[in-house]
């Protein structure tokens, strides 16, 4: 028997044999205080305290066969009830605190996003004006140059880069808008995935991506282009992590909402993307939905 158990048992005995109600009250509150501190300060599990309490009552009953067990138990329930109540309250406070911290973290992230969005919007106007001239004058120069002149290729590259920059600005601006400008529509994921893979394969010549759809069509409600963007990002990240050599497999299956533990609709699709890389460490996994997080070097 450890000391807490011993002192607790002794206090319960004093409660039972207290000369008057006031003294009994004092011992009861001491027992409560001891129970409370062993739960909160020594962080004992509550069921251990319940066991200590029951054992103490049993020992008392054994030592005093003249007394009824139910009478003893009735005298002694109070500290146990109070301890459980105070434990419950502190558990709730702890949960609330945890929830608050999580909420604050989310809020901070969304403020950060909003700030980047506003900044993007501010520079995008100036940027779009500059890009407009760059693209337009490149097009004019391209027209002026006769075929076969080496400069024509160079001008074409400037034009391609300009158009890529235009897409980049458009994507940055998407961040600035609370709702994306594009409306949601019903689209088939199968061709979306196929064209994303085709685009990645232009860049990653030594990287083998196989797509194995288990179904011929998979209609979902989404913004056009964003599914492609997701697939492309995952493939490019995998290729980068595997030094541009190796293989990855993408599968698409039909499943149910219940199986995926989502609360919308009945049917669902399961898209899996797997590669032969080293995987993602738990610390990194925690951060993957943070839009500013990357493990890539600048």
């Amino acid at each position: 028997m450890n000391t807490t158990e011993e002192s607790y048992g002794k206090l319960l005995q004093q409660v039972v044999f207290a000369p008057d109600a006031d003294t009994r009250e004092v011992y009861l509150s001491e027992a409560f205080e001891l129970g409370r501190s062993s739960l909160m300060e020594e962080t004992r599990p509550p069921d251990e305290l319940v066991a200590i309490h029951h054992n103490a009552i049993l020992r008392l009953a054994k030592a005093h066969p003249d007394m009824k067990l139910s009478d003893i138990a009735e005298l002694l329930t109070l500290p146990l009830i109070e301890v459980s109540m105070s434990y419950g309250m502190s558990f709730r406070e702890h949960l609330e605190e945890k929830y608050q911290t999580l909420l604050e973290k989310r809020l901070q992230e969304s403020h950060k996003l909003e700030a980047v969005g506003t900044l993007a919007a501010g520079i995008a106007h100036e940027f779009n004006n500059l890009l407009c001239s760059m693209i337009g004058f490149s097009e004019l120069a391209f027209e002026e140059l006769v075929d076969g002149v080496p400069a024509k290729d160079s001008v074409q590259q400037v034009l391609i880069a300009g158009l890529q920059a235009r897409d980049l600005v458009a994507r940055m601006l998407q961040l600035a808008r609370k709702d994306s400008a594009l409306p949601m529509e019903s689209l088939d994921m199968v061709p979306e995935i196929q064209s994303a893979i085709e685009l990645v394969e232009i860049r990653e010549k030594l990287f083998d991506i196989s797509f194995r759809p288990g179904i011929s069509q998979a209609f979902i409600t989404a913004r056009p282009g964003q599914i492609q963007q997701i697939i492309m990002n995952l493939c490019i990240n995998a290729a980068d992590a595997m030094e541009h050599r190796g293989a990855m497999v993408i599968t698409l299956e039909s499943t149910t909402a219940e199986e995926c533990q989502i609360e919308m609709g009945n049917s669902a699709f399961c898209l899996t993307v797997s590669d032969q890389g080293t995987g993602i460490s738990p610390e990194v996994q925690e951060q993957i939905f943070n839009p500013f997080f990357t493990t890539k070097e600048p």
Binding site: T118, A121, A124, H125, N128, N129, A176, R177
Partner: peptide
């Protein structure tokens, strides 16, 4: 439209 002084340029 230049696109962005007004965030919702559409």
């Amino acid at each position: 439209s230049g696109g962005a002084r007004h965030i919702f340029f559409e």
